[in-house]
Design a protein around this nucleic acid. Structure first.
Lengths: 142, 142
DNA sequence: TTGTATGCAAAAGGTTTGCAATGAT
DNA sequence: ATCATTGCAAACCTTTTGCATACAA
């Protein structure tokens, strides 16, 4: 909220509620999931407002859109550098913080004229739940 | 096309054309961009067919959906491990192949029950064109 | 009081689905 | 001849936009 005041933006109930809802979550929710979560505290809130506020928070740099092969936007309140475990089966995202992974030497991309700001690593594979499901279905199939 | 035959799937004109169009591109096109490109060779093709064929190719493992913060699916015909430069301004993606980046030791994720298959790194920053544009607008502003 | 945020409605992508007709094997 | 694929239309889901009203400063 300080961030809003710092930018001269009014602090509304909706902004407060959306902000708190998204910041406390670690499961990289979609805009719609935030909407559903927030309706408990602010039943009159509209879906559009949630989309707009999330967009604002991204612009202010308090929130990041995660890269994900699916076509729905997912939001991540963690601003410091970290990495992701992405499940190829269910699409779930798990945060991964490991100092060693933050220390990779940047490649030389001068030939592209590209200027690197930061990076993150996506490790792809199968999460615990999906591995269980596969095991079970194999058993049943026999 | 061998992949289609190997899976017992008919080889249609549409499949051939879409397959060839997407495989020869390095710019990570969207489904719609493929549709436009393909219409030159097969004007009667429908957009839905292109979507369906691209989906099939992903399922067959011949094509990958790239992770991207925007909400449109982009396709990448490169199957071997590689990494990406993602422009934060225009959303453009540049392929990056550097052996060193393929040799990062996988983190220990046994505590999550997660099984890693592979990984890729997204370097985020500004591409050459967007850096030029920023420079120019700064000049003009003064 | 002033100006921005909100809510509503409606539209705009991008993508998926159901079904009859077409086409590959 | 058989069965999957295609094309069409329409639906669907997520997200964006325009404008009058409500609200924070």
């Amino acid at each position: 909220m300080q961030a809003h005041r710092a930018n001269g933006l009014p602090v509304t109930i909706q902004r407060r509620v959306v902000f708190e809802a998204v910041m406390e979550r670690e499961d990289h929710p979609t805009a719609d999931q935030i909407y559903e979560a927030v309706r408990e505290q602010a039943p009159q809130i509209s879906r559009m407002t949630v989309y707009r506020i999330l967009g604002n928070l991204v612009t202010l740099g308090l929130l990041a859109k995660t890269s994900h092969p699916s076509s729905v936007a997912r939001f991540d309140p963690k601003t410091r550098q970290h990495h992701h475990l992405v499940c190829l089966n269910c699409g779930g995202i798990i945060d991964l913080e490991e100092e060693r992974l933050n220390k990779i030497a940047w490649p030389d991309v001068r030939s592209f004229g590209f200027e690197i700001e930061d990076y993150h690593i996506n490790f792809r594979g199968r999460c615990a739940a999906c591995r269980q499901a596969v095991k079970k279905s194999k058993k049943t199939r026999k």
